[in-house]
Amino acid sequence: MMINRILIGGSAGSIKDFLYLTKNLDNSMLPPIICAFHQSKHMTLNSLIATNCKLKLQYVDRSMNLEPNTVYVSKPGYHIIMTNDGNSVQLFDDEHFSFSKPSIDLLFYSCFGHESISTLAILLSGANNDGMSGFESLFDGGAHCAVVAPEDSAFNYMPKSGLEVVPTAKLIHSSENLNYVLKVLEGH
């Protein structure tokens, strides 16, 4: 089982979850990580992430080929989607989708296809429904799905809803980082 990309969606409280996921990473290579976070316009992820993990943070400003050990995020106010069979990422400037921009649903749906099977989709903390239908579609397409454990998340509506649509989604606790999650999945 090979995971070629990790898609992460989150809303309120999700940055804290993301920091847990990327804490104390070992030197093994991580697949590219593409994130749709509902953020305020004036929030920047740079300082948060730079202090906590050794991954490269890349704000997407064009169609970009994916590289390992890199976190791809959009500027607030833009959708972020996968293209080219899940091997590149770009922004998409359109109306809100699932009442959100960036929309987690749009990101997840954009990876639906034969590339689903080599994708890990993760839902973090949040207080709304964005991402649920995309999460379910990815799972139906063969993707690996995980949510932060609702008891560990600041706003558990999003991970709980994720578990409702994909009951077999792996639970990630705050003591577990991405290295651990990938090892567990590879063990299966």
Partner: peptide
């Protein structure tokens, strides 16, 4: 339209 999001 290949670079548009398909759900859109």
């Amino acid at each position: 339209f290949e670079r548009y999001a398909l759900p859109a």
